[in-house]
Design a protein around this nucleic acid. Structure first.
Lengths: 279, 279
DNA sequence: CCCGGCGATACCCCGCGGGTATCGTTGCGG
DNA sequence: CCGCAACGATACCCGCGGGGTATCGCCGGG
């Protein structure tokens, strides 16, 4: 199967509309229609059901959509990583959630930078649930992830530390003087709903809380008295005096891991991992 | 990047010889040379160092080789799984090492087959270290793996059971009457070397023992008095009366896991996993 | 009933991927 | 020291396949 055809199919499968997909691909609609027919002929499988009013995915089509996205990501990763490896001064890209584990990250970067032949490390900050994708499609080479919030399926990893979680509140809130809270109590604070995190596809669950995409946004909302949140203990290090925390013992512990794609043989990634695990 | 070009590059990078690579790709050498040049130009990177006597990989080239193989496997997987999903009676392929965990496998297949809407399960048996590849390139959908012998990097998985290991010997061997053996003792039995298992790339380590590619071969060699082997306890169930076992308490325990690629949403795979974990 | 939206078809053309012939370099053997 | 053979690069040619425009056929809604 040609990657071009697969890209075309993924566009159509996502738009469920040949015209819009063609526009997105910067091409005309007829050659797109033919390319999809060709692909279906070659696979010997019907991928799309076209009734003259709507396009829907068949079973085989949704399988190809999922597998095809993964394959296109892998292809993009090959492209980007080869480019980076051949660049004048090859560096390595580390991705992490904006506003999370910043002191740990600083320590790792320091420890690695002091190694004899350390490469340049570019830090890429992104919203929740985008990190895995950056690792898959080659925008990043190595990531700091947080289980169980992030899934580590598809990657090699080393665990760095495990910590409990705390409720983050505006300073002076009545509950701030409690010694501990249960998860159930934290979820039901009048006027301070827990935020909604995005799914991996970028959508948001329904519910009362504000929709956020990274920790920085979230902390700001808490400062404004619009939300509360259950976060790892280490978040305390970066809170200003306008925020305070209460332990939540029954919240699941959060494990910070350093993760990388299994096929990497990069010395720089290995060095970073070594530095991180030795801390 | 076009998948065609990537295939060409991988062929050249593996052969390190344009002529042989062209032959393998069933094409002439000149268009192959040009395709690689085009790829290098588009990436803005030198992938191969050509001295008129030898071709060698640059740093960027070996990165692209590793990443490219993964991407081509993902592409092949998309192709095969879409074909299977669109087939007349879509089934699911389970892969495992020939001769390992056969009773557990039988139980899983039975349990799953008794579910209401169970799909057809094709069992694919292969040698050691080939299973991961079959899962990656779509020849299989789900695998029974054995840690720490197999790595599970890149897959979602559920643990099924953990067991100790035993030394498998020809019946009547003097050591057969020992109540237990250490790993060190097992490795030094006069006349009965431990076998050599293949690496993931298909090569074999150097050493005295016979090179084997699956358990069936291995058991036959032990029967013939040409080898001994440390294997999971459950292997005992399939030994004939010509073989016997001795516990090896200090051998690392073996965990059998059921694993699948993270992007699968297949109901059949989910059913198999459920059946396996419920046993 | 007609129009508008949408995917498929018809038809054309250009470019690129592939083929053959040949060159340029270089290591090696006589 | 020269010539040959091995090997990748270059030159040149060709055919087809992927892309474009125009249009059709189907269907649902006003």
């Amino acid at each position: 199967m040609e990657s071009r055809e697969l890209e075309y199919f993924v566009a159509v499968a996502e738009e469920l509309h040949f015209g819009r997909a063609a526009e997105r691909l910067a091409m005309a609609q007829p050659p797109l229609s033919r390319a999809i027919q060709r692909l279906e002929r070659r696979l010997g499988v019907t991928l799309l059901e076209r009734s003259s009013r709507a396009v829907t995915l068949t079973e085989a089509g949704s399988v190809l959509l999922a597998e095809g996205r993964a394959a296109l990501d892998a292809l993009a990763a090959a492209d980007r990583r080869a480019r980076r490896a051949g660049a004048r001064k090859p560096g390595v890209v580390l991705v992490t959630k904006a506003g999370a584990s910043s002191e740990l990250l600083a320590k790792i970067l320091d420890a690695y930078a002091s190694e004899p032949d350390a490469a340049e490390v570019d830090v890429l900050l992104c919203g929740i649930a985008e990190q895995e994708r950056t690792l898959r499609d080659g925008r990043a080479d190595v990531a700091l992830l947080h289980r169980p919030y992030d899934t580590i399926a598809g990657f090699d990893y080393e665990e760095l530390r495990t910590e409990g979680q705390v409720l983050v509140l505006p300073a002076g809130h009545p509950l701030a003087y409690r010694g501990a809270l249960s998860l159930a109590e934290a979820a039901e604070i009048p006027g301070l709903p827990l935020p909604r995190w995005p799914y991996r596809d970028g959508g948001y669950p329904d519910g009362p809380g504000p929709a956020v995409r990274d920790h920085t946004q979230l902390l700001q909302l808490i400062s404004l008295g619009r939300a509360a949140a259950v976060l790892p203990e280490s978040t305390r290090a970066q809170l200003g005096s306008d925020l305070t925390t209460v332990p939540v013992p029954d919240a699941p512990p959060v494990t910070t891991v350093i993760a990388w794609p299994p096929q990497t043989h990069s010395r720089a990634v290995a060095g970073l991992v070594r530095a991180a695990t030795r801390l």
